[in-house]
Structure formats: structure tokens, C-alpha cells
């Protein structure tokens, strides 16, 4: 067998394809590695611009990070940059996203208070209960409720194996039953409060809120930049919102608002 024989036509094509595949693999690996390093560089670049007092450039640098992915620090810094630019609604939206991701971050909390204090008009603020339950994310509450729920039923299953086992795990069963019910209740409460929170934030000064979802519709009232509104209904390009402080409602174009994910 001649192992050094030149490849025939079909074999030659296979070899070329293999080499091409290998090259592509290496290139794509290097590209993906470069991509992996890019967010940190963009983030650092944005921070530098922010420190120099150039928030617009900072936002541009932050914007080069993959739009689908974010972090609490990124949202926080974006919020600061928007705040410097006077874009209070955008800043508030970013900070609330940061709060969703890091609910126990004191700086985020402080920044949120500051930005809300700057926004004119009757602002919305979370209730004490909402603030307390907001110390954990909904997923954390769900995890606690799920774990205690599984543990409870696991112990109930163990108890079915015999009277001795039932006696042995009785205390644990009661405890985890209480925990499961308690965490479940808190999860439900946190979820209900979160849904009640205003999820729509106005990002324009004097955004028109109309009586129907049409550009020609009469303006019901105007919402100020940074106003936090409750979402009542959604249609393409339009959101029906309600102002928590006054109870007024109307339709606002999605161009003038941003939404905060429930999370």
C-alpha cells in the first residue's frame, strides 16, 4: 500500500474540504475568542468615556456589546450615562433593569432613588412590602418555593414507606410543608406585586397619551419624561397605559416609551 500516493480527484476534493474546514474552525474559534473578549473591552471603554464626562461616547461603547445580553453593571452604567445626558426616562429604565438583575445592590437602589427624586411630577415608588419582597428576584423566590415543595413531597413519600419512617421524618415533613406553603405564598405575593408595578417608562418629554391608538386621536394627557406607567393593553405600535398616581389612562406610542421586563 502506497501511503504517499497522490490523492485522486474525489479524494483531493475531500482533502481540500478538510483543510478548509480546519481553517474555518480555527478562524471561527479565534473570532469567537475575540468576540468573548470584546464585551469587557467595550465595557471598559465605555467606563473610560463616562469618567471623562462623555456619556454619549460611553453609551456608544456600551452599545457595541451584544444587545441581547446584559448585566447589572452594564445596565447601571448605562443608566448613569443617560442620567448625565438628562435622559431621565432612559436612565430610569436602565436602572430598573439593573435592579431586576441585582435586587440587593445598594448602589443601584441609591441611584434609583436619586433618579426618581429628579423626575418631576407625582412619581411612583414601590410599597414597603414590595421593597421587602424585591430583595429577592422572582426566580430566587421560585427556586426556594420549588425546592421546599420537592423536599416536602419527598418526605411525604418517605413517610409512606412505613410507620417508623413516618415517625422519623414527621418533624421535617411539617417544617418543609410550612416552608413550601410559606415560600409559595411569598412567591405568589411577589409575583402579584411585580405584575402590578408600572412596567412602562416614558422616555420623551411631554409624551402624548391619546384616547385611542391612532396618531390622529385626541390627546388625553401628556406624560413627562421618566413617568412610570402601568401597562393595561398592548397593540402593535401602541400601549394602553394607566397612570398609577392619577388613574388616568390612554394610548401611547411605543416610540415614546420603553418597557421594563418583569423578571
Amino acid at each position: 500500500m502506497n501511503v504517499r500516493a497522490l490523492p485522486q480527484g474525489g479524494s483531493c476534493a475531500r482533502v481540500v474540504r478538510r483543510w478548509l474546514g480546519l481553517i474555518l474552525l480555527l478562524v471561527s474559534g479565534g473570532w469567537s475568542g475575540a468576540q468573548a473578549a470584546a464585551p469587557a473591552e467595550h465595557f471598559e471603554n465605555g467606563n473610560t468615556q463616562l469618567a471623562k464626562g462623555q456619556p454619549a461616547e460611553a453609551l456608544a461603547a456600551y452599545g457595541q456589546i451584544a444587545p441581547a445580553a446584559t448585566s447589572a453593571a452594564l445596565e447601571f452604567n448605562r443608566g448613569l450615562a443617560h442620567g448625565q445626558l438628562g435622559q431621565l426616562g432612559q436612565a430610569l429604565a436602565r436602572l430598573r433593569r439593573a435592579e431586576r438583575l441585582a435586587p440587593r445592590d445598594r448602589e443601584v437602589d441609591l441611584a434609583l432613588r436619586q433618579i426618581r427624586a429628579r423626575i418631576t411630577g407625582l412619581g411612583w415608588a414601590p410599597s414597603p412590602l414590595g421593597r421587602l419582597l424585591g430583595r429577592l428576584t422572582l426566580n430566587e423566590w421560585a427556586g426556594l418555593a420549588g425546592l421546599s415543595w420537592w423536599a416536602w413531597f419527598g418526605l411525604l413519600l418517605v413517610a409512606r414507606t412505613g410507620s417508623e419512617a413516618r415517625q422519623l421524618v414527621r418533624g421535617y415533613t411539617v417544617t418543609f410543608g410550612g416552608l413550601a406553603i410559606g415560600f409559595g405564598t411569598l412567591l405568589g405575593l411577589a409575583w402579584w406585586l411585580r405584575v402590578q408595578e408600572p412596567a412602562v417608562i416614558v422616555t420623551q418629554a411631554n409624551a402624548a397619551v391619546r384616547i385611542s391608538p391612532l396618531d390622529e386621536a385626541k390627546i388625553a394627557f401628556t406624560a413627562h419624561d421618566g413617568a412610570e406607567l402601568q401597562l393595561a393593553e398592548e397593540r402593535p405600535g401602541w400601549l394602553r397605559i394607566e397612570e398609577p398616581s392619577s388613574g388616568r389612562s390612554g394610548w401611547v406610542s411605543t416610540k415614546f416609551v420603553v418597557r421594563v421586563p418583569v423578571r
Binding site: 464585551p39 451584544a66 445580553a69 448613569l80
Partner: peptide, 24 residues
């Protein structure tokens, strides 16, 4: 301009993740 000075900028990017629907 003072706003950027008074609020410390976060220097650690942290883990990037998408906003996905909550578990519930």
C-alpha cells in the same frame, strides 16, 4: 458633568445574560 463623578461607575461587567421570562 458632576453626575458621573458622584456616582461610582461599576467596573466589573459581571456575567452577561439575556432577559428571559421568569420561571413562573
Amino acid at each position: 458633568a458632576a453626575a458621573a463623578e458622584v456616582m461610582p461607575v461599576k467596573s466589573n461587567l459581571g456575567t452577561l445574560r439575556a432577559f428571559t421570562p421568569v420561571w413562573v
